[in-house]
Design a protein around this nucleic acid. Structure first.
Lengths: 226, 226
DNA sequence: TTACGCAATAACGTATTCATTGTTGCATTA
DNA sequence: TAATGCAACAATGAATACGTTATTGCGTAA
């Protein structure tokens, strides 16, 4: 009735993928959660075929593990895993920052970046860590997208997703991320000045530090994994 | 009879994946090749189910595209694609080089790196570009593996694979890659000196240059894609 | 001749079926 | 009690079956 003709029918396999993904990221399927294909299929209300397809994709993206005869298992994230992930993100996002600075960003793009930095500042003033996390995510997202490199954006997204659960756990425990805001503002400045070396340098330093901070936190708090 | 008990039975889906992958990389299924699921399954001598699984994986890895009702299509690689891929490889491999230099490599590892550089030198003396390409690949492979970052190694591998066909096409046409050998040797030196900044710098510069050279070649030779 | 519409077809997405094989639990034995 | 062997079971990997729907080809009309 509504939307006559624009029936965007989503295939079951895709629906299964998004549903499982969101359950995992929301910790409704926490790290270590295990279930057979049939169990998952039943929960999703479909057959094993599209379920399997979704699980294969999630395995490729590093969120779950498939062990024959044991079904899927939601992967825990150890501090070593986080180290790997942050090393990758550091390299890739720094590339993106340099690339954006080199080719230059238009006014709209600059405005969007600045607006996300402003949101981060405001969130910090309000001690609103949820908003801060959202604005921070937006900044990183914009940055890699403005690089114009679709593959890069997609890889970064995959690893951000892998790290998402751990970040969610620690954001409340970390010191006020004042430095992050400053670093982001500096990256925007470098982009405005078309100074790609500086953009690279600043962003890399920022990612390195925040990665080390996060890993330190996880270790101190005794999260060997998850 | 032979190998009693150690029957390493490969699942059809995995066999299909490797078979298709090798056909694509060897250009037996050239860019643009198109076939339905049923056709591919018939060629592989199995049903659509494991075939489909293999195709999904190849799609995730960026080698083919799946279009409903049209089957799979081997993706062409345009110069823009190569630009994206090389930008990613530059960032990631430079990270790896820095990481290896920072944590240090043991004698065996150094020896392996040096041996691959030596092979590259020898291949160059003999004008044997196939051997050169193999030794070059080995160097890059060793480098990312010695970083100890499994995720990084695996992502690099995926993008190297995407670029493989284009590189194969151009290696015979490019100028003698003397600079590559020098750069690789310099990276090894930086690793030996535990100079991570230098390793980063040299490797990044090398990747940037060879990427630009390759893209220039593709453009000059009028390969808009493939 | 070109555009349009309809019917036949073919391909996919999903469900179901089936054989194979690893796992689990229990009974037996040292 | 702990270890071993066997039988029942359960989960997967693969094949097949089936309904839906986009595409293609042909005939008709402008």
């Amino acid at each position: 009735m509504t939307n006559p003709g624009i029936e965007a029918k989503i295939p079951y396999s895709r629906a299964a993928y998004w549903q499982l993904r969101s359950w995992i990221l929301d910790n409704e399927m926490p790290a270590g959660y295990q279930a057979t294909e049939q169990e998952v299929a039943s929960v999703l209300g479909m057959s094993r075929t599209p379920t399997r397809e979704a699980m294969l994709r999630l395995e490729n993206e590093g969120l779950i593990e498939l062990r024959s005869r044991h079904g899927m298992r939601v992967l825990p994230i150890s501090t070593d895993d986080m180290r790997e992930i942050y090393e990758i993100l550091t390299g890739l996002e720094a590339s993106a920052a340099a690339s954006v600075a080199e080719k230059g960003a238009n006014e709209t793009e600059i405005a969007e970046l600045e607006s996300s930095v402003a949101d981060m500042d405001q969130a910090l003033d309000n001690d609103d860590l949820d908003s801060w996390m959202a604005a921070d995510a937006r900044f990183h997202h914009l940055l890699v997208n403005f690089s114009g490199n679709k593959r890069l954006a997609s890889v970064v997204d995959i690893f951000l997703t892998q790290a998402a659960r751990a970040r969610k756990l620690t954001v409340k425990l970390r010191p006020k991320p004042t430095k992050s805001n400053i670093a982001h503002a500096a990256v925007v400045d470098a982009i405005k000045n078309r100074d790609s070396d500086n953009a690279w340098q600043v962003h890399m330093q920022h990612r390195k530090e925040s990665g080390e901070m996060l890993i330190g936190l996880l270790q101190d708090l005794g999260f060997p994994h998850l």
